[in-house]
Amino acid sequence: MKVNSLDGLAAVQRVLRERRRRAEEEAARRAAEEAARRREHELFERSVGPVVRLRSRNLAEIVRPRPLPHPRQRELDEAEVMRVALSDEFDPESLMETDDQLSYRQSGIGDDVLKKLRRGVWVTQGQIDLHGLNRDAAREALAGFLIDAGKRGWRCVRVVHGKGLGSPGRQPVLKGKVRSWLVQRQEVLAFTQARGPDGGAGALIVLLDSSRSPDGRLR
């Protein structure tokens, strides 16, 4: 019995020694980690100066929905394509109707479309006013407007170019330019001078093909 008691005591001592060894190793590991954190903290303080912890205000953290990404660069690219595509060298006279309103319709578009456009059968869904803009600014604004109209799926729009009464020599510079630019666009099916209440000789009513994308491709 005495021998067995001594063996059991020795086993207990071995277990205790192993526990002490593990505890000492764990304490040493924690001390090393704490020392490393202090060194990093001291290095940070030497770099940026003393740091004061902000007082907790116990405010709720609200997750706000982020705005959807806006394809600004793509819009700029499309506007540039439109600007380049609208040439000032193009002569639209051969494509115009020979009436006093210089109306226009694409090949394959019947004359009844122009008649309806003149009568105001289609409601205008949007408009752009180019008053006061020079040629380049007006061309860019019109390009952007056509892009936006295509994205919105608009079918009938009004383009106000003015009568040119304020231009040098009282010549309507934009009036002819706007017609020339519109004729070059595939999505422009037809246009005609607006009726008196809608701007008369200072505006155009434009019929658009909503099945075409802003860059002229079918979608």
Rank of each mutant, 00 (worst) to 15 (best):
I205K: 15
A149F: 01
V188Y: 02
L68D: 09
R14L: 01
Q186G: 03
A32Q: 11
G202E: 04
A60D: 11
A194Y: 05
I147Y: 07
R195V: 04
R57T: 12
E97G: 10
K177H: 11
G199D: 03
V188D: 02
R53W: 09
G110H: 07
A138V: 03
F191W: 07
E140V: 12
R14N: 01
V178H: 00
G49V: 04
V160S: 02
R155N: 09
A35K: 12
A190S: 06
V63F: 05
G196A: 14
V159G: 08
K177C: 06
G166A: 03
L43E: 15
W181F: 15
A35E: 14
R20F: 00
G153H: 03
H131V: 02
Y104F: 15
P65E: 09
S94D: 12
D100I: 07
R195L: 08
G153C: 02
V183K: 01
G164N: 06
V178N: 01
L207K: 09
R30S: 04
G49M: 08
L16T: 00
E25R: 12
S94R: 13
Q13N: 07
R135V: 03
L6H: 14
V206F: 01
R22F: 03
E140R: 15
C156N: 08
V51Y: 15
L54I: 07
L68K: 13
K116H: 11
E34Y: 00
L102N: 14
R37C: 06
G166E: 04
M1D: 11
R212E: 02
P50K: 14
R64T: 08
D112V: 06
N4F: 13
K175H: 09
V206P: 05
N134E: 08
N134I: 01
G164F: 02
V183C: 12
R29I: 07
H161K: 05
R83A: 11
P69G: 06
M1N: 11
S5V: 09
P67T: 07
L142P: 06
I109E: 10
R105I: 05
E80W: 10
V123D: 07
V183L: 04
G150A: 15
I128N: 07
L146G: 06
R46K: 14
K177M: 04
A143M: 05
V206A: 03
R139N: 09
Q127I: 01
E45C: 15
R217L: 13
P69S: 05
F90R: 04
M82I: 07
R39N: 07
R152P: 02
L165I: 09
R118T: 06
A141C: 10
R158L: 09
W181R: 04
P71G: 06
S47H: 13
K151M: 08
R55P: 08
D215Q: 14
L6S: 14
Q171E: 10
Q127M: 10
F191S: 08
R29W: 09
R118E: 12
E97Q: 15
I128V: 15
